[in-house]
Design a protein around this nucleic acid. Structure first.
Length: 693
DNA sequence: TTTCTACCCATTTTT
DNA sequence: TGGGTAGAAA
């Protein structure tokens, strides 16, 4: 046994030796937060108070005072936020800051599990399920349980998954959760509990994890295996957590584990911006930070540098209506500025034309497109605008809403990759097999049984092998099709090439696309070409990843890289206009913000008004949207909407914005320029806009 | 057993 | 809108 000699901790370098002048760059509150010593620190930071800036400087400060960058863990809610922070810190100091380990909780956990999964009975090449995959696994679990026919008034699988997810994320017992949130299903407690167990078992057998598992299993791993905890947490000299108000129980516990060796944790957040309740986030964790870390120092940032006073006034007023009050009122030095506008457009089209016109006018006047953003409650709200922007050739990117990775044809191709990655992945097999003509549920099931038998008894790479003799269990009519599937998968095996080097991921995707093209044309005859474009994007994405494992992980955890890919419009070198759900815009700021579809029933969402807490969350969502704006804020709404079936109907403005005095928000109405404009020439909206009578 | 067709349904936010 | 289901045809 080697003797341990303990060196005293390195003294931080004296202030004069630091390359950056922190005191000059930050205000006193920010400075205190950025240069705080070790231990636990909570920074309560209102919107626009320089939270990101402070965290960025803290990263630089830690690096400068001798903390190795790869021992700093920076946990954020989006990978975009992590990237932004490390590049900004890199620009401040030097490239060292970019070696900070950062990302979402899920990505960070996935990275940990890649190394240690075998300790908890998973392959290190475990697959990651998105919501749709999880639903497939739930179906599989149900049939394995023999529950072909579900009782009447039984939750749908999406609801089922939501229930199971809430149980894991919030740590509430199933019975309690059902009683509180789903009283209608309380009578099915036993069946749901059995399904929950079968679902977990199926995932284990097939070597896949859903999003919650990434968190829950990592937490279990760290709690139950002290050597692993020592190793993982030992590499977290400093843990920094952004948006702490949005952590759920699992995430709060994970943070505690990550900091358990060195005891250095900095959490930053704003209780007024908690908008992930539906995912189990609980403001209680930020409010109770000092209970969890009794020696914590609590710092505040209250000086808003982002927005003009009129914007803050409106945001503050909206927030005041919350039932649960937050004792915070932001102030700014930025006096002056225009009143926020409440733009009443006759319909969707008008709203889209208005936004597009103002965006173009502002670009003309020198505001870069990426300094403006269009925000909305849900993905579909921007459809009309997307069409309009495409028509006018305004480049844009959209964050949030439907992900390309969720498209059926993309999932088809990815299923083949997953099968190659993890032959035990029954759901992926099922999807791939069902694409063979003539294979339905029965045949797929028979083949799956055959495979699992073969893999259980035989060699590790047995699945593809087993398929070569699969003729024995399938009707002759489909044997040829399955043979082609096997042939397509063969070159994806790791040892398929001399030397055992696997094909690079983009080559793997290319091979698969050759195989899949005829399938695509058979299954989606109407728009095969359009869908092929998406698949080409998959190939492009593959080229940016080192291994198939990394590619699959990125597809499951980082759909962002995606959305950034196909920028619309001709100006490839112009940074595009940002379209984003309010949720995805968290933490970002823009010179001008357009909040579209500010309607009652949309924001607040009609589906989120079942309890006062839910309405409060919608209100905070509105607050988040409004506080993204620096100098100009336009809230717009169509007065008439179309609904399938019902036709046109009148809308109501969002309850959070209606009834406010004109000193807070100025009503605008739209008129069209007088000579009847030809349809191709949009009417100039801006000059004709006038305040309503 | 698979696949096609007709109908009905609900319809958010994210990893 | 499209996705999922139920029933019928191949």
């Amino acid at each position: 046994m080697a003797r341990r000699f303990v060196l005293p901790a390195r003294e931080p370098a004296p202030a004069s030796a630091l390359a950056l002048d922190y005191a000059a760059a930050l205000d006193p509150q920010q400075l205190a937060a950025a240069t705080a010593g070790g231990g636990a620190t909570l920074v309560v930071a209102g919107a626009g108070t320089g939270k990101t800036r402070t965290l960025t400087y803290r990263v630089a400060y830690l690096v400068e005072t001798g903390v190795p960058p790869d021992q700093i863990a920076l946990l954020t809610f989006t990978r975009r936020a992590a990237r932004e922070m490390t590049t900004r810190a890199g620009a401040l100091l030097d490239g060292r800051c970019e070696r900070v380990r950062g990302g979402t909780f899920h990505a960070f956990c996935a990275e940990t599990l890649r190394v240690h999964a075998p300790r908890i009975g998973f392959p290190s090449r475990f697959g990651i399920l998105d919501a749709a995959d999880a639903a497939d696994v739930m179906d599989l679990a149900r049939t394995r349980l023999g529950l072909d026919r579900l009782p009447k008034r039984f939750p749908k699988k999406r609801t089922l998954l939501a229930i199971v997810s809430a149980v894991t994320n919030r740590g509430v017992p199933l019975a309690e959760l059902l009683a509180e949130g789903y009283p209608a299903y309380a009578e099915h407690l036993d069946t749901i509990a059995r399904l929950q167990a079968a679902y977990a078992e199926t995932k284990r057998q097939t070597g896949v994890m859903d999003y919650d598992d990434l968190l829950a299993l990592t937490l279990g791993l760290l709690r139950d295996h002290d050597d692993v905890r020592q190793r993982v947490a030992g590499r977290c000299r400093h843990v920094l957590v952004d948006e702490y108000q949005d952590v759920n129980l699992l995430q709060a516990d994970l943070v505690e584990q990550f900091q358990s060796v060195h005891g250095n944790v900095t959490a930053v957040g704003d209780d007024a911006q908690s908008i992930y309740r539906f995912r189990g986030a609980d403001v209680g964790h930020i409010l109770g930070f000092a209970d969890r870390y009794p020696s914590a120092r609590i710092l505040k940032l209250e000086h808003n540098y982002r927005s003009t006073q009129p914007i803050l006034d409106l945001a503050n007023t909206v927030l005041e209506g919350a039932r649960e009050k937050y004792d915070k009122r932001l102030f700014t030095d930025r006096q002056g500025g225009d009143l926020p506008a409440l733009v009443q457009a006759p319909d969707d089209d008008w709203e889209a034309r208005f936004v597009a016109q103002v965006v173009l006018d502002k670009r003309e006047a020198g505001t870069p497109l990426d300094r403006m953003a269009v925000l909305f409650r849900s993905g579909w709200c921007s459809y009309a605008l997307e069409a309009e922007l495409t028509r006018r050739q305004v480049p844009f990117v959209k964050f949030g809403g439907l992900k390309l990775a969720e498209a059926a044809h993309v999932k088809d191709v990815v299923a083949h990759l997953r099968v190659a990655e993890n032959p035990a992945d029954a759901v992926a097999w099922n999807r791939a097999l069902r694409l063979v003509e003539g294979v339905g549920p029965q045949t797929a099931r028979r083949v799956l049984d055959w495979i699992s038998q073969a893999t259980a008894s035989g060699a590790g790479d047995g699945a593809v092998h087993a398929l070569q003799s699969v003729d024995e269990v399938v009707p002759p009519a489909v044997a040829g099709g399955i043979g082609r599937l096997v042939a397509a998968l063969a070159p994806l095996r790791d040892a398929s090439r001399p030397g055992g080097e696997p094909l690079p991921p983009e080559a793997q995707v290319e091979r698969l696309l050759d195989y899949y093209r005829p399938v695509l044309e058979r299954v989606y005859p109407d728009d095969a070409d359009r869908r092929q474009d998406d698949l080409d994007a998959v190939a492009a994405l593959a080229a940016r990843h080192r291994s198939r494992t990394a590619l699959l992980e990125a597809l499951a955890l980082d759909p962002l890289d995606w959305t950034q890919e196909p920028a619309q419009g001709a100006h490839k070198d112009e940074a595009p206009l940002v379209l984003s759900t309010v949720h995805s815009a968290k933490g970002l700021e823009f010179e001008a913000v357009f909040l579209i579809h500010a309607l009652d029933g949309v924001l607040p969402s009609a589906y989120a008004l079942k309890s006062p807490e839910e309405e409060d969350e919608e209100r905070r969502l509105m607050y988040v949207a409004l506080t993204r704006a620096e100098t100009e804020l336009y809230c717009s709404l169509p007065l008439v909407q179309y609904r399938r079936g019902t036709g046109q109907f009148m809308t109501e403005p969002s309850r959070f914005l209606s009834g406010l005095p004109e000193s807070l928000i100025e009503p605008w109405s739209l008129t069209e320029g007088e000579p009847e404009a030809p349809p191709s020439l949009p009417p100039p909206a801006h000059p004709e806009l006038g305040a309503a009578p």
